[in-house]
Nucleic acid binder design. Structure first.
Lengths: 155, 155
DNA sequence: CCGATATATTTCAAGAATGAATATTTTGAA
DNA sequence: TTCAAAATATTCATTCTTGAAATATATCGG
């Protein structure tokens, strides 16, 4: 594994990479936000919550949801409350551990997300049309290593 | 240039890449936020504004600043106002075009940013230690193409 | 069993962010 | 020239977001 650079050259390259990556991420997020707002009258954080719950159909606790989305506990409460109001998500109070709350999509939430997801997928496909299989091979590997490395550093 | 996929395989890969990239970006942002808060009692958006102004020492208009950072005009006003209060940034009212306001770092802003930037650079260097020169070569190219492609799609 | 500690969630205050509306100034086309 | 359209920045209402404090429940060591 590589290490932090003593020399400045490597550090500079890493910094530039980060800035560029951040720019790309924001551009994509802005496009997604616009799409969700205009076409579906919803928001990115709500979509993210629904996506996480769709993937884990059995549901997630509030804490697990926060960790999955990398957002704070308080924020998770806010967004989930909104989705509950809209009838897309439901809170289930655990019997064994009465501190825990499991959150799941309602039937309506599932149906709605499936429509959203299809369009979301199309949009991502278009935004990343620049990337072919070779690019994706390389990036998949790099991002996996990067994610693991970052997780390790957290602990 | 590649195109959106008719087939689902490429679309799936692009989607997975996006999700992974978003995760990495959030992890890094969270670490930066923590560092700025604990060590310097400041925030990520304020740092971003200062970084943009440091790079363009002659200053930027509010609109240029918004475009550079990919944030809304209203938000830019909020963050700049805060920095002005703190004495780190200054508003200059243009004579030629009285709609325009040019924003620059104050001397104190420059001094403060230079300290911040050095530590920021170290942190990024550490967080991205996993990436060596070969990785950076590949990523630089990919992100540049991606950014150009996204900008083109905007227009 | 008890008290301390840890875990899970919500609430709260403050800041960040958006998009729409507003006010002002400039530009450009008839 | 003139005036409608475009451009610039701020304000506003709403939502998102954080981190800390509060609340409630569970666990663990003695």
């Amino acid at each position: 594994m590589a290490v932090p650079s003593e020399s400045s050259a490597l550090a500079t390259r890493r910094l530039k990479l980060w800035i560029r990556m951040l720019g790309v991420t924001r551009q994509v997020e802005n496009q997604l936000r616009e799409f969700l707002r205009v076409d579906f009258d919803t928001t990115l954080p709500r979509f993210d919550v629904m996506a996480a719950l769709y993937r884990r159909r059995e549901g997630l606790t509030m804490t697990d949801l926060s960790r999955t989305l990398l957002i704070s506990n308080g924020n998770t409460t806010t967004v989930v409350s909104r989705l509950v109001q809209d009838g897309l998500v439901r809170r289930l109070y655990s019997e064994e551990d009465r501190r825990r709350i499991t959150v799941t999509l309602t039937a309506e939430g599932i149906a709605r997300f499936e429509i959203l997801a299809a369009r979301h997928r199309e949009l991502i496909d278009r935004l990343f049309a620049e990337l072919g299989d070779e690019d994706l091979d390389a990036l998949r590997d790099v991002f996996r290593r990067l994610r693991d490395s970052l997780s390790a550093q957290d602990a």
